[in-house]
Design a protein around this nucleic acid. Structure first.
Length: 236
DNA sequence: CCAGACGTTGTT
DNA sequence: GTCTGG
DNA sequence: CCAGACGTTGTT
DNA sequence: GTCTGG
């Protein structure tokens, strides 16, 4: 799950909404089809900050976490998700979960619901109804030096809750605004309590919207990708 | 000891 | 079927 | 996540 | 870097 999402807002808007310093400092086109390997905005605590009130910064990173010990950055190709249930023990993630946590701003995300016979699939777009951003819990890592230097991130997943189970069995781990400070707190190296309490309420407030098949192709990127399609074309 | 993996999803 | 690229 | 490629030799 | 399997 969660191999595609949207990031429509520009850095200035995101910096405002997430109370972060804008380090991107250039305009971005709204992205209606964020796929692994793309560079996208994420929010992290500033260096040398302390506590849940630590200052934050908005920076761009590549989606797909490349562990610092990887021989080749292609390793990140498959690490675009990390299971909340096993994060702390997996070699690829356990150091990042202690020290390098991020918020991944999104307007919504896509899931492909499979038909019962598994032969066809229908994409859905899950989005907020009030236009506020979602914050996916994420981790980041740096890899390489000099010309090869990369900063990459992964999105944490958890078991789907409530209405979302109709579409898929996993979902991104949503953090309520009240938990952002604790999630990013540089002084904290144990977040098992936060990972134990997903934002159920937020999930119930989302709109689940069947959309056209065009989103499947990563080269497509336009507002039409998130438009609701006719119920006749839906499998639900 | 060294060599090789280190991940998720979904499907069977 | 399985890997790569976006 | 999905879509698209998946190979070599030799010739242009 | 660190764990697992042989």
């Amino acid at each position: 799950m969660c191999g595609r999402y949207t990031s429509k807002k520009n850095p200035v808007e995101l910096a405002e909404e997430f109370d972060a310093e804008d380090r991107i400092a250039e305009q971005r086109r709204p992205d209606f089809n964020v796929a692994p390997t793309r560079n996208e905005p994420v929010v992290r605590a500033e260096r040398d900050q302390h506590g849940p009130q630590a200052a934050r910064e908005l920076v761009e990173m590549r989606w797909g976490l490349v562990p610092f010990w990887a021989k080749d950055p292609k390793a990140g190709g498959r690490m675009f998700n990390a299971r909340a249930e096993t994060l702390t023990t997996k070699p690829a993630f356990r150091s990042a979960v202690k020290k390098r946590r991020v918020l991944v701003p999104a307007d919504g995300w896509y899931e492909w619901k499979k038909s019962e016979d598994g032969k066809t699939k229908q994409p859905y777009y899950m989005t907020t109804q009030d236009g506020s951003s979602l914050a996916f819990a994420g981790l980041w890592e740096s890899w390489g030096t000099g010309e090869d230097y990369l900063q990459t991130y992964t999105i944490i997943t958890t078991e789907a809750q409530g209405q979302l189970t109709e579409v898929h069995d996993r979902m991104p781990f949503l953090l309520p605004a009240s938990a952002w400070g604790d999630w990013l707190d540089p002084d904290r190296d144990d977040v098992t309590d936060l990972l134990a309490t997903p934002d159920l309420e937020r999930g119930e407030q989302l709109e689940l919207r069947p959309v056209g098949a065009d989103v499947g192709k990563v080269a497509n990127n336009s507002p039409e990708l998130i438009e609701r399609i006719e119920p006749g074309a839906v499998l639900l």
